[in-house]
Design a protein around this nucleic acid. Structure first.
Lengths: 154, 154
DNA sequence: CGAAAATACTCAGTGCCCTGACTATCTGGC
DNA sequence: GCCAGATAGTCAGGGCACTGAGTATTTTCG
């Protein structure tokens, strides 16, 4: 009695979507490198020398998870981690040559996977899909980190 | 160089969406009961006496995760687990009175949270949002479990 | 300069999520 | 009746994700 229809619950849908993606990633992209690991590699390819905190911020991970992911990538020799001589609290990160090669290889496969993943949607629907999810996620994140960009109201 | 734009990657978006939801759930619904735990409770309220495998299937969890979630709910006295006398492999599950009360209480809060979560979207956009995500997730799940419903061709 | 506040990172603890290997039970065909 | 195969559940192992507490370093301010 009085049970709820989970197909209209965004959280449940989000979880199923992520699981579906996880599955496809595993079969079509890599069993070694995970999607969050690729995201970290990706930001380091674009901006070498970032510190851990900033990397986490860019890809949407908290401190602890960022540290774990970076630890794994480091152990596999895909990135280097050196103490910032200017600020002893920070570690500066950059992808190794091996890391860049891996990133390049996975970029291709990721693009293919995204095609398959989104194949049920038309071109306009894909745009909608991105836009709607992004708006919801952004809004929820702003509830957490209120008003960092631009001016604060007076 | 040659880095990729993650905002057009459905997997990355899915992860961010789920994280945003996790956050909101924690603050607006419960710090004790998680969203997957609520989903299990929900299916047991609707269909008491299901076995573990079926529960997992209904809410979209694999065997191992289902066992963990059910274990936690059992330890908190929110569900009962008894061996099926008809089939000694199965455990039959049902929500306890306490479990049903918890479910009722969280249902209300969950509805409120969904309102907040979806507040950036108009009514039509919400419909679109559900529909698009569901189509993508369903399609990917069918890649895994091909053609269970209806007749097999031949 | 020196103490207080802020910042970057680590660590412990909990929970979700999957795979692959294993055990127990049941079913079907001989 | 028996055995092979299917099925339900467990367990070990790896990875993601969060919180809260703790350490080291830097910045700020009196």
């Amino acid at each position: 009695m009085a049970a709820v229809d989970l197909t209209t619950h965004p959280g449940h849908l989000a979880r199923r979507l992520q699981q579906a993606h996880y599955l496809l990633w595993n079969t079509m992209v890599s069993e070694e490198i995970t999607s969050p690991q690729f995201a970290v590699l990706n930001v380091l390819v674009a901006e070498p020398g970032l510190d851990q905190r900033t990397v986490g911020e860019r890809v949407g991970l908290d401190r602890s998870t960022t540290a774990e992911v970076i630890g794994r990538l480091g152990r596999r020799g895909l990135l280097d981690k050196v103490r910032d001589p200017q600020d002893g609290r920070r570690f500066l990160l950059r992808a190794t040559d091996e890391g860049e090669r891996t990133h390049r290889r996975l970029s291709v496969r990721t693009a293919r996977m995204n095609q398959v993943f989104l194949s049920p949607l038309s071109a306009e629907e894909r745009t909608q899909f991105f836009e709607l999810i992004r708006r919801v996620a952004d809004a929820a994140e702003h509830l957490r980190h209120p008003a960092e960009p631009s001016a604060t109201p007076g």
